[in-house]
Design a protein around this nucleic acid. Structure first.
Length: 617
DNA sequence: GTAGGGTTAG
């Protein structure tokens, strides 16, 4: 038996003396198991901490055999063990039901267990049952779990109700509850109340400070978050920020583009012994990525001792944002090899950005293999992926089978229909969504306006464009204007489109003018085209599109000399046309090529090292 | 002495 422990239990964080003192069945009763329930409670805690369900089950068996499982301490420890190591609700409820005495701690374990496993509604049901059937009075532990449940549900009314209970019982100076309350109000964007709770604390600790900073960041109040951070760092308070604080503050700095301060914070974190902290490192990486400094981000990533899904996602997200899809693809290969536990949502998003259907399907299979299902983030990403790869019917099939859809899911499908030329279905879906009481956002309107422009629904498009600002208070962005310019100029209402751009705050955005200029060729309008091209050349003299598009307009109306003049002007000014690039898959290898390449003569390169077979213009 | 807070990405 001792040999068994040596061989199989040496890597266990459980102290060996504790395992051994359970007794050895082969010793034939010479070493009797200890009968003290207290010892068993400690053992169960150790197993829970060590994450060893095997030991937990072993101890449970001993307890049942020796009839000690009716002890109150032991029962509660068992409940905690099963909830943490085996969150199977059938099992947990069996343990709960079989407890001889259900005290406040047993009920609180259930409430907080449900919160921890992501079932806040179940948690609140248990809380209510505890008051109704248990006839027990909630303590500070129970209330902090209840506040967290309402925070997770985004139910500020329930949260406020618990706040009342906290206040009446005089728990409002409790730091644990206060940080939950700050979080609860902050995540529901009731910032005044979050700040009030925080400001009423006499000596907030590092976690309370992190809570307020975190909710300010969450609500995009980055400057305020920094102010709080600097107040927290005042010497007289002697509060030491930990990894969580650094991570949160790094988000604010990344969003503000304050690289220098980000670097300083990273350096300070290292000197205060937080080097190698995965939260600090990942958030530093993300800060660089958000500021577009991908080389620095990559450097942090390469030097990290431990990486987790977040580190991978931050790096992938950075490359995605920089539209460096080759880097994403390369990373994806490395990630597969290292078999990291990565976030399916982000990887699928990268696949969708690349229109990499094969990799996307691999991820989808992997997701199904690990038994993942009903995750709304992943399912939305799958809808997006299949729609972007042109498999719009399959995307719709997935969409129809999703039981819980959120705004992101709807947006993915609306945009999916729109991008695949199914304008009418996109508009129909948009209306369905509104009917179901889901409030469309910035992205939803991009989808529906895109659909209108590609289906020629001028009247509807104009109506949605107005409704966006008037009914939903969304300020039209450059994407919405792009759709509108496209919508108007496709049907030949070029002057109207020109007016729209001139009156928009994006009149200096050459992408809008380019959309209009492109349509001038179709509608043979050199008059508008000349005005627009002149405007574009003023904005960006070296932007090739204004020259190329104007030359095209001249060609369509037969003004060949003018077209030649434009080409000449391009040469004189040294403007070059950027080659279009794309990639195809041949024999499971990805091959990148440029618009000027001759496909027949192309040499295929392995996807791990995407190099171009280039003969640029 | 069995139950509890804030954490980086999308």
């Amino acid at each position: 038996m001792k040999r068994f422990y040596k061989r199989y239990c040496s890597s266990s964080p459980l102290p060996q003396s504790q395992i051994l003192c359970l007794g050895d069945p082969s010793s034939n009763g010479r070493r009797r198991p200890s009968k003290k329930p207290l010892l068993y409670a400690t053992l169960l805690q150790a197993a829970t901490k060590a994450g060893s369900l095997t030991h937990g089950l072993q101890f449970h068996a001993h307890l049942v055999k020796s009839g000690l499982d009716s002890d109150r301490f032991v029962g509660n420890s068992l409940l905690s063990l099963y909830f943490k190591l085996c969150p199977d609700f059938f099992v947990v409820h069996r343990v709960f039901e079989s407890l001889p005495v259900r005290d406040v701690i047993s009920w609180t374990s259930m409430v907080s267990g449900y919160v921890r496993t992501g079932h806040p509604l179940e948690a609140l049901r248990m809380f209510v049952k505890m008051l109704a059937f248990g006839g027990l009075e909630p303590n500070a532990f129970t209330l902090s779990a209840a506040v967290k449940a309402s925070s997770d549900l985004g139910d500020v009314r329930a949260g406020r109700c618990f706040h009342g209970m906290v206040f009446v019982r005089g728990f409002d100076t409790n730091h644990v509850i206060a940080s939950s309350l700050v979080n609860m109000y902050g995540r529901s964007s009731v910032l005044e109340d979050a700040r009030r709770v925080f400001e009423e604390l006499l000596q907030p600790d590092a976690i309370c400070w992190t809570s307020i900073i975190s909710v300010l960041t969450w609500n995009d109040e980055f400057g305020e978050a920094l102010n709080f951070f600097y107040s927290m760092m005042r010497k007289e308070l002697a509060i030491i920020p930990d990894g969580f604080t650094c991570g949160t503050i790094m988000t604010a700095l990344g969003n503000l583009g304050r690289v220098r301060q980000g670097k300083e914070t990273h350096a300070r974190a290292i000197t205060s012994g937080l080097s190698g902290n995965v939260v600090v490192e990942s958030s530093t990486l993300d800060m660089y990525a958000k500021c577009g400094l991908m080389q620095d981000a990559q450097k942090v990533f390469d030097q990290m001792g431990t990486r987790n899904a977040v580190s991978w996602c931050a790096l992938l997200g950075g490359y995605c944002q920089a539209k460096n899809y080759e880097a994403v693809l390369r990373l994806f290969r490395v990630m597969e090899k290292e078999d990291e536990s990565y976030s399916f949502g982000t990887v699928l998003r990268a696949c969708a950005g690349l229109a990499a259907i094969r990799q996307g399907k691999e991820v989808h299979c992997r997701y199904l293999r690990i038994g993942g299902w009903r995750n709304v983030v992943v399912e939305s990403a799958l809808v997006d992926l299949y729609a972007k790869c042109g498999l719009v019917d399959y995307a719709h099939h997935l969409f129809s089978n999703i039981s819980i859809r959120n705004l992101i899911t709807w947006n993915a499908m609306i945009c999916g229909f729109a991008q695949n030329g199914r304008g009418e279905q996109a508009v129909e879906l948009f209306n369905d969504m509104v009917k179901q009481g889901i409030r469309p956002d910035y992205i939803s309107f991009i989808g529906v306006l895109f659909a209108c422009s590609h289906t020629g629904l001028v009247h509807e498009g104009k109506r949605y464009f107005r409704s966006m600002t008037e009914d939903y208070g969304i300020t039209a962005g450059v994407e919405h204007y792009n759709c509108m310019v496209d919508l108007l100029s496709r049907v030949g209402r070029l002057e109207e489109a020109e007016d729209l751009i001139n009156n928009a705050k994006y009149e200096n955005d050459s992408s809008l003018w380019a959309a209009l200029l492109g349509a001038c060729a179709t509608h043979s309008s050199p008059g508008v085209a000349e005005r627009v091209a002149k405007k574009m050349m003023e904005l960006e003299p070296r932007y090739h599109l204004s020259y190329v598009l104007l030359a095209n307009v001249y060609k369509t109306v037969g003004r060949w000399n003018d077209a030649m003049q434009i080409r000449k002007l391009m040469r004189e000014r040294g403007v070059r046309k950027a080659p279009g690039k794309s990639w195809i898959e041949v024999d499971r290898r990805t091959c990148a090529y440029l618009g000027s390449d001759n496909v027949d003569k192309m040499e295929f390169e392995d996807s791990d090292d995407l190099s171009y077979t280039v003969n640029s213009i």
